[in-house]
Write a protein that binds this DNA or RNA. Structure first.
Length: 257
DNA sequence: ATGGCCCGTAGAACGGGA
């Protein structure tokens, strides 16, 4: 069972690439982030013509998450439903069950600038995620937390750690917040299989991709019972190449059935 | 060379991303 996470940076701008990706890589589960569209604008017909079913939580302009699978995703829930967003929760979290595995597609908060309101919201959102895990996931069930975490966990996940330490993606405080999420009992499955400097996001500017100046911020974390089934992991770097690419590349982790 | 882009919403630049 191949699970993929991919921040598409607008689903409508990525329709051709999405169809080609589904045909070429045929994942069993594809978690998408940053749809940037409302539910009625999502390309359901295209997805179905590729042999997939999609469940999603859309939002106008910003955010938006989806889970695609070859069969209908089951037991779908959207958001934390914890009352943590008085003005309405942002579309950043969707969970569904596919072939016995519960999968979450999460779009963590970026965080703007250090010390900003968005930064505070990011850290708070991650604490809410941990609380959601505590209340909704059993440590002995096969569960995968997939998505754009907007956090690079370790120095080897950052092309220039000393420079990025003062950014919202790699600041010590946000790494600590991620560890608190992980301490629920989740394994960074990618690092079971790949050592060294491998990235999943590169800035559009400055030829960052060609210079491989990236960060690994897209992840597939799993409960131990699922993580022990992981067989291999890779970043599909080809998807970041050429015209019309998202600034994120898909991350694939393959599990035994 | 320490800056370089892309997307959606606009209906021109601007907010936002990372």
């Amino acid at each position: 069972m191949r699970i993929v996470t991919w921040n598409v940076n607008s689903i409508r701008a990525r329709e051709e690439r999405l169809a080609a990706f589904l045909k070429t890589h045929a994942p069993d589960v594809l978690c998408l982030q940053e749809l940037k569209c409302q539910e009625h604008e999502f390309p359901q017909m295209l997805v179905q013509s590729c042999g997939y079913r999609a469940v999603l939580w859309g939002q106008k302009t910003y955010n938006g998450v989806a889970i695609l699978a070859k069969e209908d995703p089951q037991d779908v829930t959207r958001g934390f439903n914890d009352g943590g967003d008085p003005e309405g929760e942002q579309a950043r979290f969707i969970v569904a069950k596919v072939r016995g595995v519960r999968v979450a597609s999460a779009y963590f908060v970026n965080g703007g600038a250090l010390g900003s309101d968005k930064w505070d919201y990011k850290l708070k959102w991650m604490r809410r995620l941990r609380a959601w895990l505590d209340a909704n996931v059993r440590r002995d069930e096969p569960f995968a937390l997939c998505g754009d975490f907007n956090v690079a966990p370790e120095a080897r996940d950052v092309h220039a750690p000393e420079k990025w330490e003062s950014s919202v993606l790699y600041h010590p405080d946000v790494r600590k917040a991620l560890l608190h999420v992980q301490d629920f009992g989740l394994v960074d499955t990618f690092r079971k299989h790949v050592e060294g400097n491998v990235y999943s996001w590169w800035d559009y500017r400055a030829g960052a991709f060609n210079k491989d100046q990236g960060l690994r911020i897209d992840h597939v974390y799993a409960t131990p019972v699922l993580a022990e089934r992981s067989l291999k992991a890779e970043v599909i770097r080809d998807e970041r190449k050429g015209q019309g690419a998202s600034d994120h590349a898909p991350v694939v982790v393959e599990f035994s059935d």
